[in-house]
Write a protein that binds this DNA or RNA. Sequence first.
DNA 1: CCCCCCCC
Length: 416
Amino acid sequence: MPRAKKTIKTNQRRKKSGRNQPSSQSITVTPDSDLLFLTCLVSNIRHTRQRTKAERRRQSPDTRHQKNHVPTNNDHARSTEQRKSPEVEHFSSTITISSQSSQSSLSHPELDQSAFHSNLHNEVDRNKSSHSLINQRTSHEISNITRPNLTTNETIHNQQQNIESNSPAIDTFTNVNDDPSASNRQTSITTYFAPIDEQFQRIVDLNEHSTNFRIRSKIIYLSNVRHFGSNKVIDGILSDASGEIKFVAFNDQGERVTTSFKVNENITLENGEIAIANPRYRTPFSRFEIRICPSTVIRIYQSNSFNPLIQINRKPLHEVLPMSHGALVDVEGTVILDRGLISSTGHDATNHIIRRTFKITDDTSTINVTAWNEKTDEIPENIMNKTIRIRNGKINYYNDYVSINASSQTIIQFID
DNA sequence: CCCCCCCC
C-alpha cells in the first residue's frame, strides 16, 4: 500500500541523516566551503573559546536534563516565555559559541546536538559580539536563501532572531557597512529603512492590514486536500517563536502547497492576503489566516535551530483519563515506554494499518499514545525519555483502556 | 471560497 511504502522511505531517510528529529527531513549536509567559513567565523570570536567535540558531548546530556523537568501548567505562554526562563539564562553563557560550533557538528552525525536547538536563539540575544559578526555576512547571503546551505540560513536565522526578540529591529543593521558585497545597498535609505528582504516579521504582528510581509515559519499542521463543489482547498498552520497563523490555499494555489509543503519543515513566506479567519476554522492561538495567492512567494527555509514550539492548552494527564471517547485534548509528557511500530490489517483485508504506541507520563499520571499511519512518519526512531507535546489528540477507549490517538488532525512535537 | 476522520 502506498502508505506503508511512504513510511519506509522516510525511515530510511531518517537513518541516513543520522538524526532523530522529525525536522531532520529538511537537513542537508553543509558543504566543505561552509565549514571553512564556519571555522573562520568561530575563530574570529575572541572572548569565547570554541569547545572541543568532547566538551560538547559532555554538555549535551546536561542540557537535555535541564530541559526535561520543565513541564509546567503554564504552557500556553511557554513558548514565548522560554526565552526568559532562568534555566536558559543559566547555561546560555557557557555555550555561547554553540550556534556556530554545533553547525559544524552537522557533518558529524554522531553528535547529538538536538539539545542545543531550542536554546540557540537565546544566546544570540545576549551576545552582541557574535551578533555583529554575523551581520557582516547576512546581506548577500540572504539572497541565496534557496541555496541548500545551513550556514547561510543559520546566519540569517541568528540575525532574524534578533529582530524577533528585540523590539527595535533597527540595531540589527548597524554593521552592514562592513560587508563589501553589500555596497550597492549602502544608501542612507536602506540603512534606516531596512530592506524587506533582510528581515522577517513576527507572526503575531501580522494582521488584516499587512500587505508586504515576510515570515519564516515551521509548518506545524497540513490538512488533507478537501473538495467542495468543483473547488478544492488545503490549509495548515504556520508557527514561529512568536505565535502561529493559519494559511489556506484554494485550487491552483493549493497545488503549490501540496507539492512543496511537508509537516515540520520550515519555510519563508512572502505576501499573501491576510484576513480574519472564520471562527469555525480558527486555531485557539490565532485569529488570522493567510490566503495564499499568486503573488505569494514560498521558499524552503533550512535551519536546524529554528524550531518553534507548538502552543497547547495543556491538560494534566489525570484530568485526561476520565474524559469521554472522542474528546480532543492537548497534553505533554515524557516517553517512558516505546512499543515500536506495529503493522496490521483492518476489517477490510486490503486496508493496511501501521501504528506506533508509546506511554507517556507527566507529574500526574501516565497514558498510552498511538500514532496512526502517516503520523508515524513524524515520530523519531528514538523517543525514550523525550518529551512530546500533543495538540488535538483524540481520547480513545478500546478494550476498557484509555489512550490518546494521534491521527491526521493531531499536531505532535518532540521537544527534546 | 473551507472542516472531518475511522483504524487496533
